[in-house]
């Protein structure tokens, strides 16, 4: 299971990075989203998978899954949401102001 997950995470990262290197602003945002998904899965995979019951004490299970990665991911999901929202609005704003979403045309002409 872990091996399969590792491979999937690698694929997600590769696709995410490829999108990140693109010129279109929307593709870049999509790339960050995919990398974020990959990261979440990476963290939970590193903690070990399916090794016990959900981390709820009421369940009286013999073993629980590792709660620490879950807490980290919970934070990461929310932060990632904030980041995506900000990036989207930034792209929207940049497009309205400058009329392009192409990264190569978004360069300033100064300081070169």
């Amino acid at each position: 299971m872990e091996t399969l997950m590792s491979v999937i995470i690698g694929v997600l990262f590769a696709i995410g990075v490829y999108l990140l290197l693109a010129k279109s602003l929307l593709r870049i945002i999509l790339g960050t989203s995919i990398i974020a998904h990959g990261t979440h899965l990476l963290i939970i995979t590193m903690g070990g998978l399916k090794s016990g019951a959900p981390a709820l004490l009421g369940k009286k299970a013999a073993a629980f899954t590792d709660p620490l990665p879950q807490a980290l991911i919970l934070t990461a999901i929310v932060i990632n949401f904030a980041l995506t929202a900000f990036l989207l609005v930034l792209a929207y704003r940049a497009y309205l102001t400058l009329g392009t979403d192409n990264m190569e045309q978004l360069r300033s002409s100064k300081n070169e």
């Binding site: 872990e2 590792s6 995470i9 690698g10 694929v11 990262f13 590769a14 290197l21 995979t45 590193m46």
Partner: peptide, 16 residues
């Protein structure tokens, strides 16, 4: 991009 993917996979496997 492929390099990053391979490295991340290797990292995930090593973490195990």
């Amino acid at each position: 991009a492929a390099g990053v993917g391979v490295i991340v996979t290797a990292m995930a496997l090593s973490a195990q």
